[in-house]
Nucleic acid binder design. Structure first.
Lengths: 120, 120
DNA sequence: CGGCATCCGAATGGATACTG
DNA sequence: CAGTATCCATTCGGATGCCG
């Protein structure tokens, strides 16, 4: 439970920058967006259709925060109609892998989770 | 980006139960709580002190949702003063490992994240 | 110690309409 | 297509007070 106080970053510390990044990554739509961008870049509309339930506003906001953290790269092609795609940066790729592993671990325990909910 | 439609669970589908569980696990305090309970059980007050910034109310609420999902087990010892500790279930343990891996991946990319924020 | 109940302001986030 | 702007409902989440 405890953390090495000499570790440069510590999510348990409310003032640590890593806490903010964790909150962006694990925000309601952040993890899904990262997972959706892995393994290949995607356009705004593709993401919107892929991530069921996300609104334009939230997708836009989520992409911006991930971009500000240097996890996502925004590429514009000034063609008509406008073509923009979003890709993971090297950092984003590493984090996205971990997010996908988390999702897979969830799939693994879902049968038990659903059983637990029944009895509750 | 796409998912196998025959996969029993799919977080990208808003109606899939796994989406709910993902939201619980990646809720503002969910991932920190799971990480704090790994590798050993902890009491309410310990968790509260460990997870900087969490309120009593939110810790209570977060523990309940994780308990309802069968990821956390609540053990009461009817001593005086009351002694309660929270432990990960086998399912919770698997998910917590993935959460910790995500946090570690975050620590790894933090230098780049902070550099990206500077230029932004 | 380990909670629950209530109140309330702040933030989240969806729907809709509009723009380049 | 890729967003932005506005409005508004819901939720989040802190403070306080109380209880076993």
């Amino acid at each position: 439970m405890s953390q090495d106080p000499r570790r440069p970053f510590d999510v348990f510390d409310g003032g640590c920058p890593s806490r903010e990044v964790l909150e962006h990554v694990t925000s309601r739509w952040g993890s899904l967006t990262l997972a959706a961008l892995s393994p290949e870049p995607a356009r705004f509309g593709e993401l919107r259709r892929c991530i069921d339930g996300i609104s334009e506003k939230m997708l836009s906001q989520t992409l911006k925060s991930l971009e500000a953290d240097g996890l996502v790269d925004r590429r514009v092609r000034s063609t008509a109609p406008l073509h923009v795609d979003y890709a993971l940066t090297p950092s984003g790729s590493k984090v996205a892998e971990a997010v996908k592993a988390l999702i897979l671990s969830l799939y693994g325990v879902m049968p038990d989770v659903m059983a637990a909910r029944q009895s509750a």
